[in-house]
Design a binder for these strands. Structure first.
Lengths: 193, 193
DNA sequence: TTCTATAGTGAACCACCACTCAGGTTGAGT
DNA sequence: ACTCAACCTGAGTGGTGGTTCACTATAGAA
C-alpha cells in the first residue's frame, strides 16, 4: 500500500522508545496507563507519540500483536519438536507453563491470548489453530490426550488463563488441573516440579 | 451503630428502583455504566442515588454482595443435599454449571466470584471455604474427586470461570473440562446433557 | 551551506464521569 | 390543616485522559 520510505533516524529512535515504554508500562499496570505517561517515560511529547500511533488502540495493537507473534513462535517450535519425535503432552505442558508464567508477569498476555481466539488477523488465527491441531493430533496418536479433546478446547483453556491477579503458586496449580482435564489419564500429569 | 429508623415510603421505593436498575445495567454491560444512566433508568435524579449510595463503589458492593449471598445459598443447599445422601460430584457439577450459566448472562458474577476469594467480609469468605471443604471431603469419601484436590482448588477454578465473552457452548465445554481435571477418573464426568 | 519535507513540541480542547450542593418537595406525625 | 425533618432535584464542579494543531526544530539531500 504505502511506499516504504525509510524512517528518519530520530523518528526511528523515538518510535523504538515509545514501544519500549508502552511495553513496560502496559505489562506492569495494564492498558489503563495514560498516553501522557507513556510519552513521558519514552522521553517524547504526546504529539510525537500520536505521529507514530494515531490512536491509543493502534499502540496497544502494536504491543499485543507482537506478543501474539511471540506466542505463535513458541507454538511453532513446540510443533517442530513434536515432529522430531518429542512427546506431544510434554510439549503442551511446557507451552502452557511458559505462557502462564508470562501471564503472571505481563498483563497484556491475557489480552493477547484473548485476541487470538476472537479477532486478530485471520491469517494468524488460522496459523494458531493449525499449530494446536497438530499438537492435538499427536496427542491422540500417542494416547496421552483425552480422545474428545480438540484444538478449540486448547484455545478455550488458553484464553481463560489467569494473570497476575493470582499468585504464582495458584497459577502453577491451575495449569496442573487444566492439563488433567485434557489428559486421557490424570495420573500422567503428576510430574512433581 | 445507627438507629434503625424506618425509611420513608418514597425513599424505600426509590432505593428499590435504583437497585433494580443497577442490577440490570451492571449485568448487561458491567461496572462501566455511568451513575447518570443508572439514575435515569431508575427514574431518579443523581442526587437521590447518592443519598442512598454515597459512592459508586457502595452501589457496586450492594449488588455484588447480594450476588455473593445467593451463590453461598446455592452452595449451602448443595452441601445439605450431600449430607442427605446425595452425590458430592453430582452436586459439584450442578453447582458449577449453574454458576457458569449465570456468569454467561450477568457480568457481575465474575466480580462476585473474584471478591469471594480475595476480599468480601471474612465471615462470608470463611463460610464459603467451609462449604467447599465439605464438598471436597465428601468427594474424597466417595472416591469421585482426585485425592489431592482441595477446597482452594475449587475456589481457584471458580474464580477463573469465563463470563459472557464466551458463547454458551464454550462455557459448557469449559465446565466439563474443569470437572475432568478435578475428578479422580475423567470418565466419570461424561454424562451427556 | 542551504533548503525543505519530515518530525517534534506541548498547551489547549473536549468528552466523559464521579460527585456536590443550594434550593424545592413531600411523607408522616401531631 | 400544620410542620419539619427527611427527601428529591439537576445544573454545576473538578479531575482525568484521549486527541488536536499552530508553531518550531532538524535530518539529510542537493
Amino acid at each position: 500500500m504505502t511506499a516504504p520510505h525509510r524512517l528518519r533516524a530520530d523518528a526511528a529512535r523515538n518510535r523504538a522508545n515509545i514501544l519500549r515504554a508502552a511495553r513496560t508500562l502496559f505489562a506492569a499496570r495494564g492498558e489503563v496507563v495514560g498516553i501522557d505517561e507513556i510519552a513521558r517515560e519514552a522521553g517524547v511529547a504526546v504529539g510525537t507519540l500520536y505521529r507514530h500511533f494515531p490512536t491509543k488502540a493502534d499502540l496497544v495493537n502494536a504491543i499485543v500483536g507482537d506478543l501474539a507473534h511471540r506466542i505463535f513462535t513458541a507454538l511453532d517450535e513446540a510443533v517442530a519438536r513434536i515432529d522430531a519425535g518429542g512427546s506431544a503432552f510434554a510439549e503442551l505442558t511446557v507451552l502452557t507453563e511458559r505462557i502462564s508464567d508470562a501471564a503472571g508477569v505481563d498483563r497484556t498476555i491475557k489480552a493477547a491470548m484473548h485476541n487470538l481466539g476472537v479477532q486478530a488477523d485471520p491469517g494468524l488465527a488460522d496459523k494458531g489453530r493449525n499449530g494446536l491441531a497438530r499438537i492435538v493430533e499427536a496427542g491422540h496418536a500417542e494416547g496421552s490426550l483425552h480422545p474428545d479433546v480438540t484444538a478449540a478446547d486448547l484455545m478455550l483453556m488458553m484464553s481463560t488463563m489467569p494473570g497476575d491477579e493470582l499468585p504464582e503458586e495458584a497459577r502453577r496449580r491451575w495449569v496442573q488441573l487444566i492439563l488433567r482435564g485434557l489428559a486421557a489419564d490424570p495420573a500422567r500429569v503428576d510430574t512433581g516440579g
